[in-house]
Every structure is written in C-alpha cells, then in structure tokens.
C-alpha cells in the first residue's frame, strides 16, 4: 500500500497555462445522472455491506427504485427542457433490467459511462481477472444496448482497487470520474494509454447535499448556483487558470422528488441563461481539453 497514490503531477491553481473552452465560455458544465440498479438481495462483500438493514431493506431498495419508475422521467424532462445532456453514470445491468430508462437516455442523446454492473456489487477484493471481467462486461453491455463505446468510469459505489485506473486505460477508456483533486481536467499516471481525470463532484453531488449536509431543496439549488458563479468568474480572470469544470452529479430518486425538482429546475434555467456556461458532455470536455494539451 502506498501513502502517496502517485496519481498525477502536482500543479497548483496559480500560473497554469490557461484552458480555453469553445466560444470563450468560462465554465464547462456537465450533468451526470447516476442511472442505477440496486439488488434486493445481493451477495455479501466482506469489505462493505450493501444495505444498512438485513435484506430486504425495503426503504433503501424502494427509494432507489423510485428513480426508474418516477424520478428519471421527471429529471430527464427538466434537463432536456433547458438544453442539458446527461453523461450517464450507468449500472450497466440496468440495460438488462429496465432497458426503457437506458433507451430514453440514448434517445435524448446522452453519453454513457460505466458505474459497474450493479450499485450493490463492489470492486473491493476483486482480483485482476474479476476486475477485467466487469470492465469487459461494461463495454459489451453498453455497446449492445446503446451502440456507444463507453469512454469513462465511475467505480461502482465508488469502490476501487489500486489497479482500476491502469486497467480502464488499457481498455481504451479516456476518463475517470473518481478523483477530486482539481477544478480542471488532469492526466492520470497509468501503465499504458492515456487517462484523464474529469472533475466530478462529491461536494455538490445531490447525495451529499441532501444526506451529508442535510440541505433543503432550495439550499441545494442555491449551492449549485454559487458553485457555478464562482467557477465561471474564476474562469474569466485574466490571470486565472482559464476555463473551469463544474459537474452536477445526480440521483433521480433524490433530485426527482416532488419537493426538489422545482428548485433544481431553477438552477438549470439560471446556468443556461448566464452565457458563460459551456454545456457539454464529459467526453466533449475531455476532448476539448486534450486538444489544447497536445
């Protein structure tokens, strides 16, 4: 085990070569809906429990099932109404269980990356062959269901092994959403190929907003607007780092609740009307950044 994971070169916020986004936009905004499937009675992983209660954890399971029956449709309509595509963090087994949701996202032009097979199966304890199997399963399952070759990875339930980043780079994936060290993309040190860390966010993730910080829906909406305002204005500074990245990671069983979706819609309306936002997918942001890095 390493005290320093040696993931990237250190680079601080001052004196960077400026990042430029298309049309002079100062903040690239991407929305990352987690489209997930949780199992009612998953097998045990000794490193982490799937559910807080003995199975069946009815509230835990049913709350998340709300996403596919109700929340997704509400959230997706609001995103489409304001011109925000999704970059989907996908439990790929959703393609098998509820293809209706995956197909809806595909028809909206959303991009898919893998969030593992189920959000109740964790990478902790996997050997290399097992980890290769879930990467290969992810690539094949999403290809078959959507025609897309996945380009990114968010570890299932944020469970990693020290070899995950090397492996996804070896399989040709372009980006990881698992590292939280920066407000701009960063290349990650990998054994082969090239892997870019795109800023995702736990801090403004709706799960953190509602269940770590216990925010009200309007407080969470205000948080997202403040996050955007600051990142867009730092991106404007002559002596600043150039274009920044803001991710809005969502779970529709949270943001798609009836008391939350209205305040959230105001956030998207605000960002879309501001003029400084480059509203993009994760892949588009990584591509634009790489073109400047050479």
């Amino acid at each position: 085990m390493k005290a320093d994971p040696e993931l990237y070169n250190f680079s601080h916020w001052r004196g960077r070569r400026k990042v430029r986004w298309p049309e002079g936009k100062t903040c690239a905004v991407w929305v990352a809906p987690n489209l997930e499937f949780y199992e009612l009675d998953p097998p045990a992983n000794t490193h982490r429990k799937s559910w807080a209660k003995p199975h069946p954890d009815v509230v835990g399971y049913a709350h998340r099932d709300h996403a596919n029956r109700v929340g997704h449709w509400r959230m997706a309509d609001v995103m489409t109404r304001h011109g925000f595509p999704g970059s989907v963090s996908l439990s790929v087994a959703l393609c098998d269980h509820i293809p209706e949701v995956v197909e809806d996202a595909r028809q909206r032009g959303w991009e898919f990356f893998s969030h593992g097979i189920y959000n109740t199966r964790y990478s902790y304890g996997m050997d290399e062959a097992q980890e290769r199997a879930i990467i290969e399963d992810s690539i094949a399952t999403v290809q078959r269901a959507t025609g897309q070759r996945i380009r990114g990875w968010l570890a299932p339930a944020l469970t990693h092994t020290p070899r995950t980043l090397d492996l996804i780079a070896e399989y040709g994936l372009d980006y990881t959403c698992d590292l939280y060290h920066d407000d701009q993309p960063t290349d990650v040190k990998v054994r082969t190929g090239r892997l870019t860390a795109i800023p995702y966010s736990l801090e403004v993730n709706d799960h953190y907003g509602f269940f770590i910080y216990n925010m009200s829906p309007r407080d969470y909406a205000d948080t997202l607007i403040r996050q955007f305002e600051r990142l867009a204005s730092e991106g404007e500074r002559e002596d600043g780092p150039g274009g920044t990245v803001m991710c809005i990671p969502l779970h529709s069983y949270l943001i798609g609740q009836p008391h939350r979706i209205g305040p959230f819609e105001e956030v998207l309306r605000h960002i879309a009307a501001d003029g400084r936002a480059w509203i993009a997918t994760a892949g588009e942001i990584v591509d634009a950044w790489r073109e400047q890095q050479g």
Binding site: F37, E39, L40, D41, P43, N45, D65, A93, D96, H97, I98, P99, I117, Y118, R121, M126, Q130, A133, I134
Partner: peptide, 12 residues
C-alpha cells in the same frame, strides 16, 4: 460474486 442470477428484463 460475479454471477448475476436475476440479471434479466424486469425486477430482480
């Protein structure tokens, strides 16, 4: 742990 006996269309 990498077998998914309920992985099919519909609920598990």
């Amino acid at each position: 742990y990498l077998e998914y006996p309920h992985r099919r269309k519909g609920m598990d």
